[in-house]
Design a binder for these strands. Structure first.
Lengths: 146, 146
DNA sequence: TTGACTGCAAAGTGTTTGCACCTGT
DNA sequence: ACAGGTGCAAACACTTTGCAGTCAA
């Protein structure tokens, strides 16, 4: 298990949150995954290891993680929420064809946040930016259809 | 009725989409509204005028408008989608306390889109940015609680 | 030991769909 | 006339909740 996961587990323990095999498996899976999985994807991925685990447990734990500040919930137009255990500042690029979500590292645009504050009178705590388009794979596929 | 609404109705007609009182009312309400209402809010707002209209009709028509490029669907973490008939480039500022959504005019960040393309190989069609924080009203309320 | 967690099933939301009837063009 | 729209209810997908039994600390 990576030290990142261990660090997260420590953080949970410090908050008085109990450690269970399911909880640990869900968090580990999320932290080691690059694909921003949905609750159902997590559920199905862990099924071999936890055949009796219920979806409710996945949802319950995701909520615990989000509240503990370990995980971020991403909502898109389509169906289910996706979950991201990478809490560093980064944006997402989504393929409209196949649904792939890729990270894009970029320093946060704090200057534009200040602009928003000046124009709206809000106190801005953060922002979220999503790009959408077509991924290289889908581009290749559609261009090969002559 | 504003000329903006009339123009939109013309656009629909040109696409071969039939005009009905319900459809017209939903579109007019959306275009004259500043609050990015949800389907249910639209439904309830039009209830006095159309007591027999069903929610399905609201959803059906919103889908028609989105497909016709007249309306944009906004999804947030919480429950329902919200709909925005302002198709100009702008971003949204959401109050985490009361849920108010305010528009923020800003020239689109096309330079960062190009950056994304270079780093990810995607063809980027657009982006969406949401700011979140506290609105002036809620700030006043919380600071008055000594 | 005991409060927190799990699994299950049932309930809740928001949205879509199937179908008979109706209406705009 | 008739393709397309409406209203209604049932179906859906995702998520939450209630509860009895279980387990980590």
């Amino acid at each position: 298990m990576s030290s990142r996961v261990e660090h997260a587990l420590q953080k949970l323990k410090a908050t008085g949150i109990r450690m269970t095999p399911q909880r640990q498996a869900i968090l580990t899976f999320l932290m080691e995954s690059m694909t921003h999985p949905s609750a159902d994807e997590i559920y199905r991925s862990l099924e071999p290891k936890f055949p009796n685990m219920s979806v409710a447990t996945v949802y319950n734990n995701l909520k615990v993680f989000v509240e503990a500040g370990l995980v971020r919930e991403l909502t898109y137009g389509d169906g289910a929420s996706r979950f991201d255990a990478d809490m560093s500042d980064h944006y997402h690029v989504t393929c409209e064809q196949c649904g792939t979500i890729v990270d894009f590292e970029h320093s946060p645009l704090s200057d534009i946040e200040r602009e928003v504050e000046q124009h709206t009178g809000f106190v801005v705590k953060g922002h979220r930016m999503e790009f959408y388009g077509t991924c290289p794979d889908c581009m290749a596929k559609s261009s090969s259809v002559h």
